[in-house]
Design a protein around this nucleic acid. Sequence first.
DNA 1: TCTGGGGTCCTAGGACCC
DNA 2: TCTGGGGTCCTAGGACCC
Length: 419
Amino acid sequence: MPSTYGLIDGNSFYCSAERAFAPVLRGAAVVVLSNNDGCAIARTAEAKALGIKMGDPWHLIRERRELRDVRWFSSNYPLYGDMSRRVYQVLAERLPRVEPYSIDEMFLDLDVPGDLRRLCQELREVVRRIAKIPTCVGWGPTKTIAKLANGIAKDHPELDGLCDLTDPLVRAGWYERLGIGGVWGIGRRTEEKLAQLGIRSIADFLALDPRMARDLLTVVGGRVQEELRGVSCLPLQLMAAPRKGLAVTRSFGRPVLTWRDMREAVAAYAARAAEKLRAEGMEACHMQVFLHTNPHDGSTWYSAQRSARIEPTSDTLALIGEAMRLLPPLWRDGFAYAKAGIMLTDLVPARQQARMFQTRDPVRSAKTMAALDAVNERFGRGTLRPLATGITRSWGTRQQKLSQRYTTRIEEIMRATAL
DNA sequence: TCTGGGGTCCTAGGACCC
DNA sequence: TCTGGGGTCCTAGGACCC
């Protein structure tokens, strides 16, 4: 177990990814929007300075005159994924152990010889130069402390993107000043619960009897407390744990009113779920389908879900078939549906040998799916798709300003931006 | 009228994360 | 016109078993 953990994260990661290809955006207020261009999910410092908050609905932001010049983008996850992998590569070439934690954050094992501050500064510079992403780095004796340090580096520009919380005395100083709600693992509800007991700062929380912390917040809260004390409970995870489930759920670009559109949308989600499953080399044994109306618009709420055990598969047509069996009982005429989704759980590694009582030919299915994936990999997602998933897709997601490079390979990107 | 002590599996819901 | 998507872990409670 390392004695020093680091956390590096990309500043306004999605915005920085967009900026990497459009130098003209340097110094400009930039936001990236959620699916359906619904709300702001990433903002540059300039956009934050203009008062744009995380999660602000975009239709309200754009009405404000002073925000007319804000540059905005629909989210382009394939691009951000490429950028994230690039950042990982740069780090993994320079450190023995790196754990990708989220698309824009990596935990680092900093048990390496030499001056840590200098090393972290060098990491920031090389990530900026090669992957074109500005970052902050925080470090300390546990992951939770490294995460806290990273947040401090982000919030205090005078620290030049670096924050060292190795020294208990330095930590104690911050613990007095920082609210417990900013700690990794303490959300809004827990913060409220603690506030009722008069616990507001991190220092207050550490003064709480560990048994009481566990009774109040379960083992999770107990672990947070230990980690904040400097006792490491969360190891670095170099191997990503096999995933437990997978979901494709999406709000419609406009309300779905007809059974025909609903069937198409859910078939399309099932097809996408099957693709993801195959990309992971997994098969699903359980499927859940749900749909619901808009919870925000004051109309009558209707929501329904149904699930079933299925024969293990990652075959697109088979999964569409299962979804089409689950869906009909959920449908009620007369509602304006806002969202639907497919969730696959009980994932198992794909295997090709025949099972007893199997109703499909696995070899044939694998061949067909491999061909389908190869075409879509080469010519873009959705080039080849089952008719059941629709042609016009009037329910599709709105993406008015997608940066036009989502099939681009990272090598081409790097060439395009070579200085 | 009284009525044990474990187990497992499943589902739903809460809380949190990015 | 009108507010994202996709995960994880933990706990409680019911059904069922011996």
